[in-house]
Design a protein around this nucleic acid. Structure first.
Lengths: 146, 146
DNA sequence: GCAGTTGTTTTGAATGGATCAAAACAACTG
DNA sequence: CAGTTGTTTTGATCCATTCAAAACAACTGC
């Protein structure tokens, strides 16, 4: 839990994005903010704490809306369900544990966003680069060598 | 269609990997080799040409086995089904069209595999890096600006 | 060559993440 | 405060993929 989001902050973000301010949206925004990388189920679990009875479908809708509005970033590592994170605006990368699927952020490793150099490969007009590292998380290293 | 694979070549690869040589496996290997990035359905379509009646399930089994043996590489770009390619051994990257999902290979853009520098981020022992670029393919650029 | 063993293919069914659609509802506008 | 429009909810459906058991065929040793 890094930076939890205050209700009024969340509200401001929603309004700025031209979205109506609703309880499920505030709940999802608070659930994701500062809590790493969560899939729809994990978000749902947190949302239900704050807003009992909220259906999973609503979480999907809200996540879709917030992602569409640029308020949430979405990643889909191979083998995992879609994950959402609140850290946006910078283009950082991710490490995924090949054993337990844990995810952590990685700031661009080599100097200034080296992997992001826009280029034209094979006639494609590239606008984004996404880097996913694969490895073993600390816990799984222990269990593997132990 | 770059390098099509001959039957005996395919056989050798299978044996080298300790896999039994079977018709479906040869068919899948030939279907994927030199044909870019194919999902299970696309592979199935090709396999059925050579081996009528082959069920999709068998294609899944074979793709799984060949991938497990390191004979096929598997990528899973967000929003697409799993794709298989025969180009292995080098660690190249991919561009995916955000409009039509076409995929092309990209050799590492900045010098010598800059994105692959193994490092230790957040306690993870990284062993692989995967770079996915997103952009518009030539065709979609035309249709978008046209 | 031929039978046995083991791994593969096939048949059939099930899973899970996610999406679609329509009805019930609530947030913003004036 | 009523109307309008966007949201949430209910409920159903989709698709890629995986699981399981039975039918089968590739390799081994004889």
């Amino acid at each position: 839990m890094a930076t939890a989001m205050h209700r009024d902050e969340a509200e401001a973000h929603l309004r700025a994005a031209g979205l109506k301010v609703t309880a499920p949206r505030l709940a999802v925004l608070e659930a994701v903010t500062g809590n790493g990388h969560l899939d729809a189920d994990a978000v749902h679990a947190r949302v239900v704490d704050a807003l009992p009875g909220t259906p999973l479908q609503s979480v999907y809708n809200v996540l879709g809306a917030l992602h569409g509005a640029g308020l949430l970033r979405r990643i889909e590592p191979a083998g995992s369900a879609a994950l959402y994170e609140s850290r946006i605006g910078d283009n950082h990368h991710h490490v995924v544990c090949t054993r337990c699927h844990a995810v952590a952020d990685v700031d661009c490793v080599v100097g200034e966003a080296p992997c992001l150099v826009p280029s034209t490969a094979g006639g494609f007009a590239i606008h984004t680069a996404e880097v996913t590292f694969w490895g073993l998380c600390a816990d799984c290293q222990r269990e593997a060598t132990g």
